[in-house]
Amino acid sequence: MTTAVKVQLGLAAAMFAAAPWVINAAPYEATMGLVYKIYFFHMPSAWMFLLGAIVAGVASGRFLFGKRQASDATAVAAAELAVVFGLLALVTGPLWARKAWGVWWVWDARLTSSLLVFLIFVAYLLLRRFGGPGADKLSAGLALFGMANVPFIYVSVNYWRTLHPKTSVVPTLPVSMGIPLWFCVFAFLLLFLALLSLRATLERQRARVDALYLSLDEA
């Protein structure tokens, strides 16, 4: 574990410990009251989910076309994080929706497209786990296609249904709500970066051990 990762992890842990007080200090929202405060964890999770998806797609492209072995480890780490944070977003979302909209799930554009991108990354992990030899390359292709698919999923689902608030709400938030929000986004980002570099390092070491085993067999 490098010093940078230790600092990131420590800072993220401190921020998450402080988060309940920061969120508690934010005022109640006019129509939803206390319930909306899940937003402070929901939205950062969703953003980290998207960030993970983008990092995985870009790293896969670099692996596939640039033959950079190191990028493959980054792609795996980012895809796993996309699934973890995607799951967080998909669990906190319905909890909030139940109170705000009265139902657990609606087939709204943003929910549906998040679910689909989440499924693509679950498929990515399944392919990696059960694909056998050569699965690293295949899953890189999948991640690349998944990334190219995001706008199509979004447009098609958008014309299909829409209910979720637009992202443009963020700049219009009052400062008293904005500070806790950005605090949480930053905490999630630190956690994301720390986990990304830890997992990528682990993956690189695993690949190296595999390569050593193979060369030992041949010797």
Binding site: L116, F152, V155
Partner: peptide, 8 residues
């Protein structure tokens, strides 16, 4: 792999 990708 194919079904989530071809949802559009």
């Amino acid at each position: 792999l194919l079904y989530p990708m071809t949802v559009p």
